[in-house]
Nucleic acid binder design. Structure first.
Lengths: 346, 346
DNA sequence: TTGTAGGCGTTATCAA
DNA sequence: TTGATAACGCCTACAA
């Protein structure tokens, strides 16, 4: 067994209360020479306080649970770096897990977190299944949803202003003279982020008096390939778009690849606006015009907020915090050419 | 306070020992009707066992610490998905943290893990600082290093066969007739993965009897931009390479971007072999020939091994497990053209 | 300024 | 088959 506070107390010739006070109390709560003796013994024995015992006593673990829909998406590595930073500053640890996009896995992790007595949970919901809402609704630990939520979840949300994000892309293209603007996104599934990005696209067009055309909207299945097919289908229409807005960092490359595979040039034949401004977006060919979403800031803000809720200051329990995306103009967009897309080369 | 085992016992009219047995013991350790009563009460009260108390008693937390050098690298999101999967299967949770490439942060997380009484640690060392080795060397918890290690760390390692990885790239290019093959990697820092990838490149050339030329080796500073500059410098040499091997997924795009910025075509003017086969590599322009490294498998194998060590079967405590990379040939490499690189267009 | 002792919620030993 | 009870390691009144 590891050395305990009792070992330290015995060796130092004091009581465990004194050791505990020296370790946790404010400066000067133990006499200076007593403290010196304790410190020496702690050092010599390599004593490491057992926070399991501490948690049992205090009822707090200084652990938060982070439940991601799917951690394999590269976007989350950056978000997590923000979560880590906020946790580290506040002295919390993060148990992170990934639901692999399945509601049942999500549920089982939720139960695990409850058993672990985490002080709070950061939730990126995996699905819009009703069971999800039901299971989470009557929780007592603080929960903050991150990046997206779904109807009925009574938690605070920290997310991007998704509607503004796609709107920025559309308005940029409108300003360049584009009127037929395609939209490639994930298939809507009841989760807020997808719905909002679609709405931002549609509203921006409507506000500009541009006629909506459902044919210009394509939904891809999750993953790294269907976005290519959907974009190809979009480009193969009778009246194809002169510009495309991608609604996700994973789709950016798929849209670009499809345009090129079709033998078209970006931006000369088709302008492309990406999403998220991943670190590699400036390195693409051409450097991608993108809606920048501060991924690290998202993680940081969400963790910060959760920790505040845990520590008792809940200014706006179920309110939303929306981070503001910004358009970064690079070289994948240009003024609309007359004449539209040429037929594919044979 | 949450409901405890005592509440359940009282409501069910049994002792807490019986409740505990019903919950943890093998089937049939309590009489069927007793069990039914307990189950009903557990359900009604929404009792969730407190694993903090359980851990205090048993001395095991079923938690592992995952200490990454820098989680912000997108590669790790995929690795972590493998770690998660292994943990989930075995009923463990993973506290993940990121050292932001700093030895002091790494050390403070190590202490935090020790306080938390994690059952084991998965370590991706941040630096080759001597303090690192010293701090870790006399640990008692099981530790498995992942992806890389450094001299003096007495732990098992689960990593790619890095030398084979770059060798595969070089041999592929040699087979295509290339002789002047450039190498763009991270600046060596004493960590095994970087050293090994360099050695693999050098050995493959030596084995083929190709003269080594230090000018063909360029080291980039961490991040998303210096790799571009280093590649540009490489291409600006008097006798530039006809092919380049990139030693990291983060450098793939930087190398590609630099070649294009120089006005050269891939693979017609310069062949490029990438590293890691990220999910987006097939979508690049041109689709990247890459050394595929099973990132998810890496995470899975490392976590699996750590869990085995925790549970007491340590077949090969400090040995290495090397995952085998494979070359995926796409369209960024081609036979060497005669005449070499043209001068840059004005 | 320091010490004593009770209790946090479990598990597991020993009896019954 | 079940129940009492002693730890596990720490924090924190309350006493001294």
């Amino acid at each position: 067994m590891a050395t305990t506070i009792e070992d330290v107390a015995r060796e130092a010739g004091v009581s465990i209360a004194t050791v505990s006070r020296y370790l946790n109390g404010p400066d000067g709560i133990v006499a200076e020479d007593t403290g010196d003796r304790v410190r020496a013994v702690v050092e010599r024995l390599g004593y490491v306080p057992n926070s399991v015992a501490r948690s049992l006593k205090t009822g707090r673990t200084r652990l938060i649970g982070v439940l991601l829909a799917n951690i394999a998406h590269p976007y989350w590595s950056v978000v997590l770096s923000g979560v880590e930073e906020a946790c580290q500053r506040a002295g919390y640890g993060a148990i992170v897990s990934s639901a692999a996009d399945r509601a049942d896995v999500e549920n089982s992790y939720l139960r695990a977190f409850l058993r672990q007595r985490v002080d709070g949970i950061l939730l990126n919901p995996a699905t819009a299944a009703p069971s999800t809402v039901e299971a989470w609704a009557r929780l007592t630990v603080p929960v903050v949803t991150i990046d997206r939520t779904l109807p009925g979840l009574p938690f605070g949300l920290v997310a991007m202003d998704n509607a503004l994000g796609t709107r920025l892309g559309v308005e940029h293209l409108l300003g360049l003279g584009h009127r037929r603007i395609g939209f490639v996104s994930w298939r809507p599934d009841g989760l807020s982020n997808r719905e909002e990005r679609l709405a931002g696209y549609q509203d921006a067009l409507a506000d500009a008096g541009v006629e909506a055309d459902g044919e210009l909207i394509r939904f891809a299945a999750d993953g790294w390939s269907d976005g290519v097919d959907q974009t190809l289908a979009l480009l193969a229409e009778r009246d194809p778009p002169s510009a495309i807005v991608s609604a996700s960092s994973m789709l950016n490359l798929q849209v670009l690849a499809a345009v090129k595979r079709r033998g078209l040039r970006v931006p000369d034949d088709v302008s492309v606006v990406g999403y998220d401004d991943s670190p590699w977006d400036p390195l693409l060919d051409p450097p991608l015009t993108t809606v920048a979403t501060p991924a690290k800031g998202l993680g940081w803000a969400a963790a910060e907020r959760l920790i505040r809720a845990i520590e008792g200051d809940h200014p706006d329990d179920a309110g939303e915090v929306r981070l503001v995306p910004e358009l970064v103009v690079r070289h994948s967009t240009s003024a609309r050419r007359r004449g539209g897309i040429l037929p594919p080369s044979p």
